[in-house]
């Protein structure tokens, strides 16, 4: 498609059009000012070029009116750019509620991706067209950056953090996936493709692989294997806080603060349990740093996120994560 216009990147997500509109607005401002000032400079330089003899041009004193004009007009223009840009950025950073979550783990020098149904991929991501895809991005080693130019999205994969971005692909096809943050020797080869498929084709693709274990199921197994269950017991007799129904809600900490239980907090509580201890409990939990991989951590988080208390009078599936 873009072979005919090789100077424009492919545009294949719901935000690509918004980003391009803004981009071309700033291009227009840039062109107007560059051409306008260049013409003025060249015109003056030719019109008032030095003639023979000791020319002494008359003084032109400054003008407050002019200074105000060329301060306020650019100020107005950048104010428009700022507001417009912020709007686009907010949209990019707020995944819709119905998005499916794909986890992304950067590792020198590959991308490891996992679908909500458990299928894993390396350096390739298959997604259905038209469906919002929420990406939870992290890294196993140094900082990487998940970049799909055709979607106009980019998010750093930072070790120890879960960063979130999202996209909704609008066109089937195969698009570049790059690592945009320098990460060492093979940085330039750390990439692959995002393959956007018709929803039916995506379902077929999902069914085609080996039977997969969803992160929730994998997390539940780990929860037992790692003996988390001996302290975080559902019968309220354990030494650790009960985990059912806490996800997404604030908990009070021993320090007096409170924190909303999200992916980052659960992860931190596994690798660095003493950092934010829940009020009423002793800091007795050992660290699991180095014993669980990033992908196992993601599974554990998914499992804890799935431990919802069924709301009264509502179907148990409400708010269930990881579709």
């Amino acid at each position: 498609m873009n072979r005919s216009l090789p100077l424009l990147p492919e545009s294949a997500s719901s935000v690509a059009g918004d980003v391009d509109a803004l981009f071309f607005f700033i291009v227009a401002v840039t062109v107007v000012f560059t051409v306008g000032i260049s013409i003025a400079v060249l015109y003056f330089a030719i019109r008032y070029r030095r003639r023979p003899g000791d020319e002494r041009p008359q003084d032109v004193h400054g003008s407050l009116a002019l200074e105000l004009t060329w301060t306020l007009i650019p100020l107005g223009l950048v104010a428009v750019m700022f507001v417009w840009g912020s709007k686009v950025y907010f949209h990019m950073n707020r995944p819709p509620d119905d998005a499916m979550t794909v986890t992304v783990v950067g590792k020198r020098w590959m991308w490891k991706l996992q679908h909500p149904t458990g299928q894993r991929e390396i350096n390739e991501l298959h997604v259905p067209v038209g469906r919002a895809v929420r990406l939870v991005v992290t890294s196993e080693d140094t900082i990487h950056s998940f970049f799909v130019p055709a979607f106009r999205i980019k998010k750093d994969a930072v070790p120890g953090r879960y960063n979130v971005t999202w996209f909704r692909a609008t066109k089937t096809g195969s698009y570049h996936l790059f690592c945009a943050e320098y990460c060492g020797t093979e940085h330039a080869r750390m990439g692959g493709r995002v393959i956007v498929m018709e929803p039916e084709a995506y379902q077929t693709w999902l069914a085609g692989g080996p039977p997969a274990e969803s992160p929730v199921v994998a997390g539940e197994k780990l929860f037992t294997e790692l003996n988390c269950i001996t302290c975080h017991r559902p019968d309220s007799a354990g030494r650790g806080p009960l985990l059912t129904g806490i996800f997404g809600r604030p908990v009070h900490l021993a320090s007096g603060d409170s924190v909303v239980v999200d992916e980052a907090y659960v992860r931190e509580s596994i690798v660095n349990p003493a950092a934010k201890v829940v009020a009423g409990y002793q800091p007795v939990m050992p660290t699991f740093q180095g014993q669980v991989s990033e992908e196992q951590l993601i599974a554990l988080v998914a499992y804890i996120q799935s431990l919802q208390v069924p709301a009264e009078g509502a179907p148990a599936s409400t708010g269930a994560p990881q579709r």
């Binding site: 803004l22 840009g85 945009a180």
Partner: peptide
């Protein structure tokens, strides 16, 4: 003037690190 693209939250996401 091309700094305006990079100070802009909407366009910087695509352009940064390129």
């Amino acid at each position: 003037l091309t700094g305006l693209f990079l100070g802009n939250l909407g366009t910087d996401v695509h352009l940064t690190d390129t």
